[in-house]
Amino acid sequence: MDALYGLFIAPFADFGFMQRALFGSLMLSLGACPIGVFLMLRRMSLSGDAMAHAILPGAAAGFLFYGLEILPMTIGGLIAGIIVALGAGAVSRFTIQREDASMAAFYLISLAIGVLMVSIRGSSVDLMHVLFGTVLALNNEALTLIGGIVALTLVSLAIFWRALVAECLDPLFLRSVSRMGSPVHFIFLGLVVLNLVGGFQALGTLLSVGLMMLPAAAARFWTVRVEPMCVLAVLIGFASCIAGLLLSYHASLPSGPAIILSAGVVYFASILFGTRGILRARIIHHRHRTA
């Protein structure tokens, strides 16, 4: 009993920074995982990655002017992300270029500017910090920010759910019955940026997208409906955060990669054992019904 306590409970019970890390990352999962499900269903999984890179110059600008302060870096990241999301979204909506290409163009430009700006300041330690984050150093400001982002995300999802589903499932139909198509697309991109910005304090710009996409990708193997898929993604996110933090604590590993790798383990397990995974499809379906 004591061993179990020491393994699973004590790290969180004894250390304030672990509690904050847990609280922050669980909140992040609550908002980011459903967003990830929709990103995946819209075939924009890599756009999330691109957006995460696109945030960099904004965060770097905040960092250049104010040092390692959460608020300027967050606001900077938000602005950069929104410019790229809207720019790429607009190019794909109003020209023949598809979103993947316009997104790639915008984020590469953005990333280059970001790296340039960080290198002006000099040290590569700073760059590492922006890129990989520090979940173990979440302060009250950061937690409040994450909480606000999560609340906004969940409320927006509840309001725009039907439009978002319709826009993914049959965009032309939505356009024929309502003018919500384009607004909902941009609101959704806005939520993606918000959640990535929320995540980058904790996990860094590179890994925040991991907490968004991996649980969603794993959940896809278990269910054929959107609602349960979102719930499952959140639960997988929760489990990954807890497992990752414990791993990080006991094995002295960096917390961000530990969380993402935990989600990665769930992903591979889902590929193999999910109800729509490899093993079910290959082995169990030898029997079939008559109709």
Partner: peptide, 22 residues
């Protein structure tokens, strides 16, 4: 040419229910 995404995880009832939008 419907822009319907057939790989979207939806059931028949979800798709038809979109017709309730108006």
């Amino acid at each position: 040419q419907s822009e319907l995404d057939r790989s979207f995880p939806a059931r028949v009832v979800d798709l038809v229910s979109l017709g309730l939008w108006p």
